[in-house]
């Protein structure tokens, strides 16, 4: 007679469910890789087109900042736009899609704390968007000369911006009840702040009355630091930019975590 097998007890894990986090991260990453057309090739194509049309439309107007060519000025701006919208979409679409298709239950019922889930979603979306941004930079470098002044500033500000927009994406994904809501957040909030951030023109050249409007835009600060990493000059203090970004990342991250932990529009 065979000895009776003891039923398997619950899996033990320490204070952090690393395996759960890794599984969720892997899922988000594989999903990103499966949709290369939408997640990498599309943004890369759009970025190159932006670069071309701005060169053709504005190429005869001289340098936007002293000693900086138009291409070197535009490239970081275009990459930052792609990074911000990509991080937002990566987190928002994925969460919202899971929600309306009912798959969110798989994540909600997993033995993961809200912090683990939200943290992983934000990190995965930010990481994916950074990969796209790197691909776009690599493609652009084939056509134009991109200086690199401070690699750490580039990486740091890119990461901060990606985390910020991934958090906003999670919030939008949780709050939206229809595709309409989600796309309204994208069209009326994310695109305007990402496009009107000084990506395509030097804010310091604008009239003083409208400058404050841009300085209230977090993407402007992210872009200042990011562009500084390439061209070595900024129109604003970098400490201020870093401070604004970090506090916003913190605030949006906490809001996303709090909404998820409450189960707002997630748990019936």
């Amino acid at each position: 007679m065979r000895p009776a097998l003891a039923p398997p007890g619950p899996r033990q894990f320490g204070p952090v469910n690393w395996r759960g986090m890794w599984s969720l991260y892997r899922r988000q990453f594989l999903h990103y890789l499966r949709n290369t057309g939408h997640s990498i090739i599309g943004p890369a194509m759009t970025s190159l087109i932006f670069l071309a049309i701005f060169q053709l439309a504005l190429g005869d107007r001289g340098d936007p900042l002293p000693g900086v060519s138009l291409a070197a000025f535009l490239a970081p701006g275009i990459v930052m736009f792609s990074l911000a919208s990509g991080a937002f979409e990566g987190a928002g679409v994925s969460l919202f899609h899971d929600k309306i298709e009912g798959m969110i239950g798989d994540i909600l019922s997993a033995p993961m704390t809200p912090l683990e889930v939200v943290g992983t979603l934000i990190l995965a979306a930010a990481g994916n968007a950074m990969l796209t941004a790197m691909a776009i930079l690599a493609i652009m470098a084939v056509f134009i000369e991109i200086p690199l002044h401070a690699p750490f500033a580039v990486a740091g500000f890119a990461l901060a911006a990606a985390l910020l927009f991934a958090s906003i994406g999670v919030i939008a994904g949780i709050c939206a009840e229809h595709w309409e809501h989600y796309s309204a957040a994208e069209t009326f909030l994310v695109f305007p702040i990402a496009l009107l951030s000084g990506a395509f023109f030097a804010v310091s050249r604008l009239p003083a009355e409208v400058q404050w409007l841009f300085k209230a835009n977090p993407v402007f600060h992210a872009l200042e630091g990011f562009r500084f990493g390439f061209i070595g000059q900024a129109q604003e203090s970098l400490a201020l930019a870093a401070g604004v970004l970090l506090s916003l990342v913190g605030a949006m991250g906490i809001l996303a975590w709090w909404l998820y932990a409450r189960g707002y529009k997630l748990k019936v």
């Binding site: 701005f54 504005l58 695109f191 009107l196 023109f201």
Partner: peptide, 15 residues
């Protein structure tokens, strides 16, 4: 809205 954004960007970029 997107079209207006493009208009605004180009108007601003031209200073």
């Amino acid at each position: 809205v997107t079209t207006l954004l493009f208009l605004a960007i180009f108007a601003l970029a031209l200073g």
